[in-house]
Amino acid sequence: MRQFTYERATSAASAAAAVADNGNAKFIAGGTNLLDLMKLEIETPTHLIDVNGLGLDKIEATEKGGLKIGALVRNTDLAADERVRRDYGVLTRALVAGASGQLRNKATTAGNLLQRTRCPYFYDTNQPCNKRQPGSGCSAIGGVTRQLGIVGVSDQCIATHPSDMAVAMRALDATVETVKSDGVTRSIPIADFHRLPGDTPHIETALDQGEIITAVTLPPPVAGRHVYRKVRDRASYAFALVSVAAIVRPDGTGRVALGGVAHKPWRVEAAEADMPNGAATVMRKLLDGARTTEENEFKVTLAERTLAGILEETKG
């Protein structure tokens, strides 16, 4: 790990200011992803700003009937919150499908959104990777691609976003609340928060340098059966090959978002009208334009069958 200087932030805006002027500075909260990457020298910040003391660790009801989740709320606390379990079951299910008990006790809401891909070529510093070193090339294309993206991919990057939580938040139409060093706040719909790789796979979110997440807001609860089904190589503690977050009403209509297939949680609202017509119809629109490899084309079938299983389970 490279040397770095360290400070404890006293306010969100001052934390933002400390990073705004220093491209080599990073926020640290749970640290479960950042420290892993720093040990591998994939992340090499020269200054860390510890934001754990900012008090952004509460879950509060909003005037609109939703929930405002502080950026520092730990995954365990979010999953266990009585209101989340009751009204946003898909979110609890997604959270407990991710990582391990130890990691969920540290990992934060904002950190989960900002975690980096687990593409093996991003992790292997001996290989070119446009995300790790812009312009160096993509080793994944033409490489081992079984785990990698099938939709929204580019010629520069086929990595996936690894979060489960974010997939449920996409289905719930969450909003990411931020503040910049000058105190200006933004509300970014989660649909616009994560970017597709395009020509700049190293730019992963809509955040500006020095902009800090303060909360994630959920709209009022969405009625229907909340399901998160994750398919992976082990029964527990593994990243998704494919995951499906779904909210299904008794008449078969609803919402569906996919994990493990793209650079961001993948949802196409126009496909959801077809939910009563079955998974194959939905998936044709949801995965329209998919660019698969021989190794990962199974994800198309797997996504369809996973959704079919959910639609069967939630029938009537």
């Binding site: 360290y6 479960t32 420290l35 892993d36 510890d50 130890q102 990691l103 006790n105 540290k106």
Partner: peptide, 21 residues
């Protein structure tokens, strides 16, 4: 998980946490 300890009553991976935190 070999490094699991309890901090303020909760188990964490002590390898993925800085002492200064």
């Amino acid at each position: 998980g070999a490094c699991t300890v309890m901090v303020d009553g909760r188990r964490i991976n002590s390898c993925l946490s800085l002492a200064v935190m």
